[in-house]
Design a protein around this nucleic acid. Structure first.
Lengths: 333, 333
DNA sequence: CTGAAAGCGCTAACAG
DNA sequence: CTGTTAGCGCTTTCAG
C-alpha cells in the first residue's frame, strides 16, 4: 500500500506539503494541490490512520462494550451509538462481554493496546480494573468508579410507573420478575416497583431471573416458574424476557390481557411484534446514545464535563398487554 | 502511557530485550524476564498495538460490515463472528451499512485507513469499489467480484424446502413475500420456492418488500398488502418480516395455522418467542461464522484458499405455524 | 543472551 | 507557500 513518501515523489513535491494538503492544514498552492490529488487518485491512496494516530495520540476509535450484541436493547443502542460516533469521525470496536467479568477485563486490555480514544462500558462488572486506565471512559447503566460518568435511564421511576400502571388497570395480585442482582438498572426498576406497591400497601411477589437474554437461556428460568398463573398483573424486567413470559403463559392457556396483564421494559422493537403488543417503559435510546457520545468525545477532547449521574427520562408506552377493566369485553373473559 | 523505552530504562535493560520478552521471541534470560515483568506490572504497561501493527503490517483487526446490527439475524451472526475472531486474536470494527452503497463505500475507506487485516462484507452493494483494495475480503451473501470468496447458506434449497413443506401440509393457495431484488440471498429463496411450485404445477402469488428490517419500516409494507387473507400458506423471506406479517394477520382475526400457515427463514431467536412459534428454515450461523473467519484469516496469513462459493446447508425447523391438516382439531377451525 | 540502530508512515515545528 | 527533520512506539536484523 502506497505511503505519503511515494505520493510526494510521484507528485514531485515534499511529503510535508502532501500532508498539509491531505489534512487541509496550512497553505498549499492550488497548483500543488492538483498535482498531489492526481497521484492520490491514481494510486487509490488512503492515509494510514495507524501512523497518524501514533503521532496525534488520537486513534479516532472507540471501544464499545456491550453484554451481547444480540440482545435487542443493546443492539438498538449500538446501532445509534455507531451512527453518532461515525458522524464524529470515530469508528467502533465491538466487544461482547457476555456479562462476564473476565471477558470484560480481557477486552479492556485489548482496547488499551489498540489505544482507543475512549471506552463505553455498558453494564460493567469491573471496578478497580478501570482505576489505572488513562483512557476516557463513560459507563452505561452500572457504575464503575467515582471519577467515571454514568449514563442511564431513570430506571427507578420506570419501575414505579410500571407499578402505577398495573395498579391503575386494576391489578391487585401482582408479580415482578426481576433481573440479576448485579444489574444496577434492573435492580432500580425493582426498587421503584416495590416502592410503588408500598405506597398502596400492596404485597407483591418476586422471582429473579439468573441471567439476561442470551438466546435460549431464558426458557429455563420460565420453566422454574410454577404458580405464574395465579397473578393478574406481571412486570417483567425487560421486553425480551417479557416475550418469553408471554409465550409461557399462552402455552398454559392464559389469555393476555384478560386474565393477566403484562408490562415490560425497554420498548425494544420486539414489543411491537408480539401479539398482543407489549405495554412497556420506553428507554430513550437516542438521548442515551447521544449523551454517551457527546460526553465521551468531550472528555477525549479535554473539554470539561460534570462528573455526575446523567439520568434520562423514561415514559410509559401503552399497548395491548394492559387494559382498563371497564374496557374489557365481558364475553372474552 | 508508558512505552517500551520507559520499561527498558526502569528495568536497566535494552528495549530489544524487552520486546523479545513481551513477544516471547528469541532468548531472554530468566533474570531479565523477571526484572522486565516487574516493571511491566508496576506501570500497568500495555504494548501499543498501533506501533506494532505499523511494523508487522498486521493490525489484528477485522472490519465487519453488516446491513444493520439491530437486524436479529445479522446480530446473531455478528455475535458468533466476534467470538471466533477474538479467539484468533482479532478485534472487530463494527460497520452498519444500512444496505446503502454510499455508507458502504465510506466505511470501506475508513477500514482501509485503519489498515484492517481483513474485511467481512455482508450483503454488499458494491463491486468495483473493491477492485483496488489490497486487503483480504470475504463476502457474505452477495457476490462482489470474481476474485472474492462468497459464503452463504443454501438459500435456493431453503426456498425449495419452504415450498415443499407448505405443500405437504396441504396448502394450495400460496403467497410468497419476497425481499428486495438486490439481496442475492432472498432472491435465491424466491427462485427455489418458485421452482418447487412449478414442479407441482402450482401458481403462486408474490409481493415484494422494499427493504429489510429496520425497526418500524416493515409495517408500511404490510399495510400495502390487501388480500393477504385469501391464502392458506405464506412463505416470508425472513423471520422478522414473518413476525410482522403474523401480527398483521392476527389483527385481522385470521388464525394461524388453522387458516393460514406461515413459514419464515433464518431461524433467528425471534421465531421461538412468537405465538404460535414460527416454522422456519435454519441458517447454520455457527458454520457460516466459522467458515467466514477461517477463510478470511487464511487469506490474511497468505495461506491458499479455493476461490469459489462456500454454501452451507440449511434445514427445516418445524414449529407451530405450520400443521398437518389431519392434525387439525376440527373445532378450532 | 543482549544492545545499537534502522525504519514502519505520519505530523508538526522550524527554517527558508 | 514549501522542504527538512525529528520523532510517535515498536520490531528486527546484525554485531557483539
Amino acid at each position: 500500500m502506497a505511503n505519503i513518501r511515494e505520493i510526494a515523489k510521484r507528485a514531485g513535491i515534499s511529503i510535508a506539503t502532501v500532508s498539509r494538503h491531505l489534512n487541509n492544514t496550512g497553505y498549499v498552492s492550488e497548483d500543488a494541490r492538483e498535482k498531489i490529488q492526481k497521484v492520490v487518485d491514481e494510486l487509490n491512496y488512503t492515509p494510514n490512520a495507524l501512523a497518524r494516530a501514533m503521532f496525534t495520540k488520537n486513534s479516532k476509535t472507540i471501544g464499545l462494550m456491550v453484554p451481547n450484541i444480540s440482545n435487542p436493547f443493546f443492539n438498538q443502542m449500538a446501532s445509534v451509538i455507531e451512527e453518532y460516533a461515525k458522524n464524529k469521525g470515530y469508528t467502533l470496536f465491538l466487544c461482547n462481554t457476555d456479562d462476564d467479568k473476565e471477558k470484560e477485563k480481557t477486552y479492556l486490555e485489548v482496547l488499551q493496546s489498540h489505544r482507543v480514544a475512549g471506552i463505553i462500558a455498558s453494564r460493567s462488572q469491573c471496578e478497580d480494573e478501570y482505576a489505572n486506565i488513562d483512557i476516557p471512559v463513560v459507563a452505561f447503566e452500572n457504575h464503575i468508579l467515582d471519577n467515571i460518568i454514568t449514563i442511564s435511564s431513570d430506571n427507578y421511576n420506570g419501575g414505579r410507573m410500571a407499578f402505577d400502571h398495573l395498579y391503575e388497570k386494576g391489578c391487585r395480585k401482582i408479580l415482578h420478575i426481576k433481573g440479576p442482582e448485579v444489574f444496577e438498572a434492573t435492580e432500580l426498576r425493582y426498587k421503584g416497583f416495590l416502592d410503588g406497591a408500598r405506597a398502596k400497601d400492596l404485597e407483591i411477589d418476586f422471582i429473579e431471573f439468573q441471567h439476561d437474554f442470551q438466546v435460549k437461556m431464558l426458557e429455563e428460568d420460565i420453566n422454574s416458574m410454577k404458580d405464574i398463573v395465579n397473578y393478574d398483573g406481571i412486570f417483567v424486567f425487560n421486553d425480551i424476557a417479557a416475550a418469553t413470559v408471554m409465550r409461557a403463559l399462552k402455552k398454559r392457556g392464559v389469555s393476555i390481557p384478560q386474565e393477566v396483564q403484562i408490562i415490560g421494559f425497554d420498548n425494544s422493537f420486539i414489543g411491537e411484534l408480539l401479539y398482543p403488543s407489549l405495554t412497556t417503559i420506553n428507554q430513550p435510546i437516542e438521548a442515551l446514545a447521544y449523551t454517551i457520545i457527546e460526553l465521551l468525545i468531550k472528555i477525549i477532547n479535554g473539554e470539561g464535563v460534570l462528573i455526575e449521574d446523567y439520568i434520562m427520562e423514561v415514559k410509559l408506552i401503552e399497548r395491548e398487554t394492559t387494559i382498563s377493566l371497564k374496557d374489557l369485553d365481558p364475553a372474552s373473559i
